[in-house]
Design a protein around this nucleic acid. Structure first.
Lengths: 221, 221
DNA sequence: ATGTCCGCTCTTGTATACAAGAAAAAGATT
DNA sequence: AATCTTTTTCTTGTATACAAGAGCGGACAT
């Protein structure tokens, strides 16, 4: 599914930085010093800079001329906006998936959901399984471009979404919402599946306050 | 609205390359030689490479390791997918815009439409005015993130969309569709505006064959 | 004439050297 | 003592030098 190890160093650096940001090693706002990164990865500044350019274009970091790179920091408003778009993209995936769903497709989805079930107790593991579940839906949409755009936005939201699952009962709720999404897809009801997925992803009401709270926690660390 | 002239050379190169690709100077599939570009822009290969990395991350070009950069070439299927996503994003903009539209907002939209009217005879000029019209709607959505994502996809579709307007009567049709979109927004009918914009953007039926035809024309040149 | 193998060239990928702006530190002035 | 100014240092931006893989062409064999 993913082109594993690129031959060039810049691509490797890019991927490792993505992970480091996703898992919170570099929190939003932290500075990314080129020389330090070069030392860390055992390469010169050149491939580091190329990786940073790509990450900036993807929106994960921000480069201000002559002032270096920092991990992108999203305001609560911007975060709300991003989740609103993500919700709509995923809803679109569901709508399309309902029309084109096949036996193998549903099997893949259910296997991803089973993986979620197995990791109910560990938020980080559940997070990974949850990502796979959503990506399965992206693929089921049958629209490859949509799938890659959704995955890219998913990546961009990683630093924040990961924390979301630490909220009390959120894992359990998420899991049962998955169930109902699967149900709508099995029934071939695209609009219901879309609505369910939209609500599943969207942050509104108390979930928004939860998000802002985790944001504060993240900035404190 | 846009941060005009960046201080660094790489950003300038990036912007110029974007335009060159948009206006067809580099057709999809053409090779982008680093040394040649360096000579053209009067800089070394370093800023050229940085610009290319960014363009690749944005999806406008493709870099294959050790084999150089080429302008991204989209298959008809992929192109259909991209327009499908674009249509949905713009529909979302319209839905949100209908809720938040103000007098100034509508005025901005109508002024953009007037600009379209003034350029009905010149496809290239109409194309620019049309882009402004759509961007006005992005902004009216009130969701800044959505607006920037839509603009980014718009940029990515430029090489193809520009040709679309050369199809017989397309400019006229496009213009009157704009009128009806404005009407729905004035009426505050989000769903109708969304549907109208979705159909306006989507390529289906004969418009898809038109697109494939212009694609072939583009590859021949 | 066609196909294959080997070497050459040309382009990309990485490292290093140098230039210039920004932050930080030291000094001067009130 | 505090603030403004100047100088120093540190980091980024760009250029150049070097290494290595990919493509091309010629020589050779069939």
């Amino acid at each position: 599914m993913k082109n594993a190890s690129q031959s060039n160093a810049a691509a490797k650096v890019r991927e490792e930085l993505e992970n480091a940001i996703a898992w919170g090693e570099f929190a939003p706002g932290s500075r990314l010093d080129e020389t330090a990164l070069a030392a860390r990865f055992g390469v010169s500044r050149t491939p580091i800079r190329e990786a940073l350019q790509q990450l900036a274009a993807a929106g994960l970091i921000e480069i201000r001329p002559r002032r270096g790179a920092t991990v992108a920091v999203a305001s609560p408003e911007r975060l709300y906006e991003m989740f609103e778009v993500m919700a709509e993209l995923e809803a679109m995936c569901a709508r399309l998936a309902a029309r084109r769903v096949s036996a193998e497709g549903l099997a893949a989805l259910q296997s991803a959901q089973a993986q979620c079930a197995r990791n109910r107790d560990d938020p980080d593991a559940y997070y990974a399984a949850n990502e796979a579940f959503h990506q399965a839906i992206y693929r089921l949409s049958g629209n490859g471009f949509l799938a890659s755009e959704a995955a890219s936005l998913q990546k961009r939201l990683r630093p924040y979404r990961r924390l979301q699952l630490r909220v009390r009962n959120r894992v359990q709720t998420s899991f049962s919402e998955h169930e109902s999404i699967i149900g709508h897809l099995e029934a071939g009801d695209g609009e219901a599946a879309a609505a369910a997925l939209r609500d599943h992803v969207r942050v509104q009401g108390e979930r928004f306050s939860d998000l802002v709270a985790s944001l504060a926690q993240l900035n404190a660390a």
